[in-house]
Structures are given as C-alpha cells and as structure tokens.
Design a protein around this nucleic acid. Structure first.
Length: 609
DNA sequence: TAAATGTCCT
C-alpha cells in the first residue's frame, strides 16, 4: 500500500471557492425609527441566515409589533424562520404561541415552521396538537407539513408511526407525495438498516411517476457504503448518471468514506480524480474524510499534509479536522503530539469540544495512564465543557482494566449525579467490569435495574452476564438467562451459544453442550471457529477424545482452522519436537488417540496375562 | 414577489 498516493490525490483535489463572502453583511440597526421597508428588507435577509444574536431577533419582534398593520403573515413567518436558522427552536415555539395570543395572522407555512421547531425539541406531542390546530382553524396541512412530521417521527426513532402516517396519507389521498417526502422516508429506512426496503421504495416512486433526484440516490448510496456494500453503491452511481442525475459532492463524500473504510485506496484516488474532472469541489467533509483515512492507517504525516492543502485551498479546517488528527496521534501513541494539536486549535480560535477531550482521554486510557485521563476530566468544566456519557464510560473502562474497580464504580455514580444517563456501552463496560472482578451479586442487581429502565435490551449485554455467570460457576443462573432470551424477543447469537457451550463443558455437561450445538445449527445460527474450538476443548476436558477427532474433522470440513486455544491442550501433552507441526490439531489428535488405544491395549493385555 | 420539508465528516 502506498503511503503517499492519497497525498498526491489530495493535491489534485478540485479548487474550491474562497470561503469569505463577497457580499458584506447587512448592518442591523434596531431603533424605534426603523421604517417598515427597512424592516422587510432585514427580515428577508435574516430569514436566510438568522440573526447574529438572539436579542437582535427579539428587538426586531418588538419593532414588528409597532408596525403590525403594515406587515403581513409572510414577515412574521420570516422571523420564525430566522429563529429556526439560529437553531433557537424553543424560542421559535414560544414566539409562535405569542403570535396566536396577539392574534397575529398565521398560515400553513407558519404552522409548519412551528411544527419543524417542535420536532427538533423532541416535543412531538405538541407538534401533532399543532396539526390538529391547523385543521381546526380551517387551514389545510400540505405535503411539507406532513413531511416535517414524518421526519420528526423518524428522527425520534418511531419508524412504524412514520410508515403508518405515510400509508394513511396515500390511502386517503390527503396529499400527493413529492420527491422530498419520498427522500425523507427513504433516508429514514436507510438509517434504520432497511436499505433494501429503501431501494424498493425508490423503484416504486419511479413507477408512480415521481422522479428520484441526487438526494434520493445519495441516501441509499451512503447506506450501502456504511454496510460495506461499496460495489453496489458504485452501481447505483452508474445508474443515476445514466438517468441524467448527477452525483453531487455529498454523493462523492459518501463514496469516499465507503472506499476509505474498506481500504480501497486506488479506487479512492480514482474517485478524487473523477471529482476534479466533473468540477465538483471538495468541501470540508471531503477533506475531513481524507484526514480520517490517513489517521486510521497511522499516516499522521499525510493527514497533516491534507490539512495544509485545506488551508491553501481556503477550506479552513474545523474542530472535527483537528479532533480527527488528535485521534490519529493517540492511535499511534503520540500523546504529546495530540496535546500539541489541542494548543494549535486554541491558537486558531477553534474551541475544543467534548469530542476533543474524549479523544485524549481515550488515548490515555489505552496507554493505561488513567490518572492523566482523570486530570483531563477535571479540566473539562474549567473550560466550560460538560463531560458526556462517553467521557465517563471511557475512564470507567480504563479503571476496570487497571483493576481499580472501586474508583470505577465511584465514577459511575458521579456520572449519574452529573445527570448523564448511562447508555448501552456504559452498561456493557460496568457489567463486564463487575463480572470480571467477581462482583456477581452487584452485577446481577445492576443488570436488573438497567433491564427495568429498558437500556439493556440487546443480546450483547446478555452475553456478558451469561459469560460472567458461567465463569463464576453459576451455570444454573446462566442457563436461566439464556432460556429467557426468546421470551424477551431476543435471538441468541454465535457468542451466546458459544458461551453457554463453554459453561456446560466446564461443568462436565458435555452431552448437554452437544445438544446445544445441534440446537444452534437447527436454529440457523452457524457455529464459527470459536464455537468449534470451544467444544473441542470441552471434549478434551471431558475426556471424549474420539469425539474430539470427529469434531476436528467436522471443523476442517467447514473450512475452519483449529486455533491455538483448541489445540494447546493437546499440543501441551505432546513431546516438544512435535509441537512444531504445521497442522497441530489433527496430528496431535491422532497421536493422542493412538496413545490412548495403545494404553488401553497394554492395560488389557496386562489384565489378560 | 418575498416564508416552511430531504443527502455527507469525530
């Protein structure tokens, strides 16, 4: 793999336009003498970019109230839009309420803007009550209104309700879906790992006469890339191009990400060249993807070169760029360089964020320098940055790995006290830490609590507990949890079965382990090499040498290789010179097996004579 | 005539 080709590729990146705007910003002059044409001009501009400060928006609102009779619903809606541009959603909702109280005219656009704000505030109930309000006040919700609500449902992880609403709208012919509505649903499907359904909807919309656009394709292409199906994604690019739909910079960014994370560097370079040919300028995302690709491969020097190109091309690196670079340094163990980057950020007037600290903290924990990590945690509030779940989880994990379990548990409680909700990762770390340190009672009660809170509803965390119980000789409890999986709507995976098989073998229940292995196969869960190695070790532990031979042959038939763990026991029993054999599993086994037969025969002959 | 919906990066 060439270490510099990407750098050369980066140098060939298409030129970008200068970032600075040629238009000077309209000065904001809030004064009681502002006339209504001035106000209208201002609102027109601010509805595009938002106000610089929230106070400015509120002052304008006061002015508008004084000139109320000269202004229309459009102007008040523009003010609301400006607040949305500033991401001041709660202010937007309060202001919308104020409109209603003050009998300021509103229409479907105003309502839809308010609904959009509610969706960002996770107050979907209020969004739907606004929908009811629209109908009650004689307005007619349109395709934009419903698209906004569907997007809200999807981003709140309520895909079933979104689907239900969409189907209802079609069935009752409330609206004719447009490309944006289809795109919203297609993206929702993609983001919930239903890419094939998304692809079906793409075909359906075409059949129904709605022409997909670059965004439709980009959503699906991005999803395919994230599923590592980059070739399928590239096929879709050809398809869209053949239909006269041009991929845009976002399409290319998705593809670049996909190619880079599959290590397909030559294709990456080809794609960068293609972008240049098509006059598609690389943007901040493009460069950040390249910086990340270099860093993940440990090529921090090349990553730095990309950053230099960014500056040359007037695409200033942002906090994500530098965080990625820091992560690269941490990955290669260069903590001092990572800290240097943090200082570079500050001197460039880019504020470090929670990610910046999490990266450094993770770097220290990986090097088992947890105290340095904790120092950074304590420095965060000084900089006005609040530690998040990931910050705490990382350090808790680090502490457990150092065997400092009391501090780990204390930090977990501190995290709760700070108002951070543990997520599934925190729960895994804590449960694993408790199990490995033999706090089984605490582990079980923690599991129960998290279960009640609905946080631990996945197979992985059950696997951790089952493993912990087995290793602590609590097979019955492990079996109990295992048996309950199905009733919780969870399907045991390879790890679950393998862990149970290991547990059963350990307790001498080899027959039951074999039954579980065949159960696993009939349920459609294919054993992997770890499973085979586990049961082979189990057969050895339980002195079932003949079966071990059969299992090894079976394993070879499935093209799995016996690994060191499964063969080590056998190999240990062999004379030293035989341990160097290329395929120790079978050789060792035959040897051992014949030794046993020989031993048996000698015993028998001894008895006979 | 002006206002509202959809795609990518730690």
């Amino acid at each position: 793999m060439s270490a510099i080709f990407l750098r050369r590729g980066a140098q060939r990146l298409a030129c970008t336009f200068p970032l600075f705007s040629t238009k000077p910003k309209a000065p904001f002059v809030p004064s009681p003498s502002t006339t209504h044409p001035e106000l209208k001009q201002l609102l027109y501009q601010k509805s595009k970019v938002g106000f610089d400060k929230l106070d400015d928006a509120l002052l304008v609102f006061d002015q508008m109230l004084l000139l109320k009779s000269k202004l229309s619903v459009v102007h008040f809606t523009q003010l609301l839009t400006a607040l949305v541009r500033m991401e001041e959603y709660s202010v937007a909702v309060s202001m919308f309420r104020e409109f209603r109280v003050l009998s300021i005219p509103v229409n479907i656009v105003t309502f839809t803007t308010a609904i959009h704000s509610c969706c960002h505030l996770n107050t979907l109930d209020y969004a739907f009550s606004l929908l009811a309000g629209i109908i009650k006040s004689g307005h007619v919700p349109n395709v934009v209104t419903y698209t906004t609500l569907i997007k809200g449902l999807l981003s709140q992880d309520r895909p079933l309700e979104a689907e239900h609403l969409f189907k209802k709208l079609i069935r009752f012919r409330e609206i004719l879906p447009n490309v944006v509505m289809y795109n919203t649903i297609i993206d929702g499907l993609c983001k919930t790992s239903n890419t094939s359904t998304a692809l079906k909807l793409l075909r359906k919309m075409e059949k129904l006469g709605c022409r997909p656009d670059a965004i439709t394709y980009t959503s699906i292409i991005d999803s395919l890339c994230k599923e590592r199906r980059v070739d399928n994604a590239l096929d879709l690019v050809s398809e869209m191009t053949n239909k006269g739909i041009s991929p845009n910079v976002i399409t290319y960014n998705s593809l670049l990400q996909g190619l880079c994370s599959s290590g397909r560097w030559e294709d990456t370079e080809r794609l960068l060249t293609e972008m240049g040919v098509r006059k598609i300028s690389s943007d901040l995302h493009t460069y950040n993807i390249l910086v990340d690709a270099h860093c993940k491969e440990g090529r921090t020097k090349d990553a730095q070169d990309v950053i230099e190109i960014m500056i040359e091309k007037s695409v200033p690196p942002d906090v994500i760029t530098y965080n990625t670079l820091m992560d690269g340094y941490c990955l290669t163990g260069k903590m001092d360089r990572a800290l240097e980057v943090l200082n570079t950020i500050r001197s460039n007037e880019i504020w470090p964020n929670c990610y910046s600290y999490n990266i450094l903290i993770n770097g220290y924990c990986k090097r088992q320098e947890v105290d340095n990590a904790i120092n950074l945690l304590r420095q965060m509030p000084v900089e006005g940055i609040k530690a998040d779940v990931q910050t705490y989880s990382t350090i808790i994990h680090g502490l457990f790995q150092m065997g400092r379990h009391n501090e780990a548990r204390n930090l977990f409680h501190e995290m709760l006290k700070q108002g951070n909700k543990p997520d599934i990762v925190t729960c895994r770390i804590l449960l694993d830490g408790l199990c490995k340190n033999r706090y089984m009672d605490e582990a079980i009660s923690f599991f129960r609590i998290m279960e009640c809170k609905g946080i631990v509803h996945d197979v992985q965390i059950h696997n951790i507990l089952i493993d912990g119980l087995c290793k602590n000789r609590k097979l019955d409890e492990a079996r109990n949890i295992f048996d309950k999986l199905a009733s919780r709507g969870l399907q045991p995976d390879v790890k679950t079965y393998t862990t149970m098989i290991r547990g059963l073998c350990q307790e001498g229940l080899f027959e039951e382990a074999k039954i579980l292995l065949s159960e696993m196969e009939t349920s459609g869960c294919l054993p992997d090499d770890v499973t085979y190695n586990t049961i082979i070790r189990g057969s050895l532990l339980n002195k079932r040498y003949e079966e071990a031979v059969v299992l090894i042959e079976n394993m070879r038939a499935h093209n799995f290789k016996a690994d060191a763990s499964s063969t080590s026991m056998v190999v240990d029993l062999l004379p030293k010179e035989e341990q160097e054999e290329q395929d120790p599993a079978v050789l060792a086994f035959c040897k051992w097996f014949f030794q046993q037969v020989y031993h048996l025969l000698t015993s028998l002959s001894y008895l006979l004579y």
